[in-house]
């Protein structure tokens, strides 16, 4: 390769059950792959410095800050974004919880907050208030509506236990991703 040339890398990333392949610069961040290559703009860029968690998505079932992962690191990974939560027109229990308990004000932190909540509930279906607060400590709500966010997550936990469903959405290979 010539001096100064930065070759592109081919990556294949599955987002909400749909595979996206693209040639990307190695410096491309996962959040930009999600927003610009896949066109899924529900995942927000907030602080851009790994503090606020607005860009949180699930990578292979775990919540990560997608502004602090290179797209090349996610090559071959399964990503779930906020667009993957709703299924057949039905809100995910965490989304329903945020609606019912008024878990948002401006809504900017909400996509990241929802994804961390999904991850938390996949690990612990009945978290205490303290556990919820610990899990969401890397997701900042500058409207400071934490009280209702905690209530919303407890609502979702109850609903998930009652319905006995998996918090992490499952996608069949045939089903195209949304967006």
């Amino acid at each position: 390769m010539g001096e100064g040339r930065k070759p592109l890398r081919r990556v294949s990333i599955t987002i909400n059950g749909k595979r996206y392949e693209a040639e990307v610069e190695p410096r491309m961040l996962l959040v930009h792959f999600i927003r610009e290559v896949a066109g899924l703009t529900g995942t927000h860029v907030g602080c851009d410095t790994t503090n606020c968690g607005a860009c949180t998505v699930l990578m292979n079932g775990r919540a990560v800050k997608s502004c602090t992962v290179f797209a090349v690191m996610a090559d071959g990974a399964e990503i779930v974004t906020v667009e993957g939560l709703e299924s057949d027109g039905k809100l995910h229990p965490v989304q329903e919880g945020f609606v019912e308990e008024h878990g948002l004000q401006c809504g900017f932190c909400t996509p990241g907050m929802l994804m961390t909540s999904v991850w938390l509930l996949s690990r612990n279906p009945d978290p205490s208030e303290e556990e919820i607060r610990r899990y969401i400590s890397g997701n900042l709500c500058r409207c400071t509506g934490y009280l209702n966010i905690v209530k919303a997550i407890r609502y979702a936990a109850r609903k998930i236990r009652e319905e006995g469903v998996s918090p992490i959405p499952r996608f069949t290979p045939e089903k195209p991703g949304r967006g």
């Binding site: 790994t50 990560v64 961390t116 400590s137 890397g138």
Partner: peptide, 9 residues
């Protein structure tokens, strides 16, 4: 260390 989401990576 940092927060739970950072600790996943």
């Amino acid at each position: 260390i940092a927060d739970p989401v950072v600790r996943n990576m």
